[in-house]
Amino acid sequence: MKSLEDLKKLRESAKRKIDMRQGEADYRIVVGMATCGIAAGARPVLNALLEELDKNHYPAVVTQTGCIGMCTLEPIVEVFDKQGEKTTYVLVNPEKAREIIHSHVGKGEVLQKYTIAATGK
C-alpha cells in the first residue's frame, strides 16, 4: 500500500546519498514522446528505462523529447555519451530498452543490433 508518507522515506533513502555522490551523469538517454512516439509505445519504454536506472544506479539521466522526425521507427531511444556521441536505437520496446541500458550504459558497449544503422535506413 502506497501513501504520501512514503515520500518522506524516499527522501531519507540511502539511494539518495548515492545519487548525490554520483554527480554528473556519463550518459544522457533521450526518448521521443510526441504523438507518434506515444502511439508506438514510448511510454512503457521510458518507464522500463527509469526502472533499470533506479535498480542499478547507472550513471545516466533519462529525458524526453518531441518528434525526432522518423515516426515509422518509433519508439526511438537516443543515447549520448559524455563526448556528445549519439547512438540511435529504433523500434524499441520495454525488453529491448532494458537490454540497451544494461549493455550501453552498464558495460559501455553499443548494442548494434537495435541501432538505426542495423535497420539499413
Binding site: 500500500m1 502506497k2 504520501l4 512514503d6 515520500l7 518522506k8 524516499l10 527522501r11 533513502s13 539511494k15 539518495r16 545519487d19 518507464n47 527509469l50 526502472e51 536506472l53 533506479d54 533519462v62
Partner: peptide
C-alpha cells in the same frame, strides 16, 4: 504538494517518478 513533502529531493528522480506511477494506479 508533492514537492513540499519531498523537501528538496527532485520530483523527477527515477524512484519518485516510479512511486508516483504506482500511487496513482493504486
Amino acid at each position: 504538494k508533492l514537492k513540499e513533502l519531498l523537501d528538496g529531493v527532485r520530483l523527477d528522480s527515477p524512484d519518485v517518478i516510479l512511486w508516483i506511477k504506482d500511487y496513482v494506479r493504486q
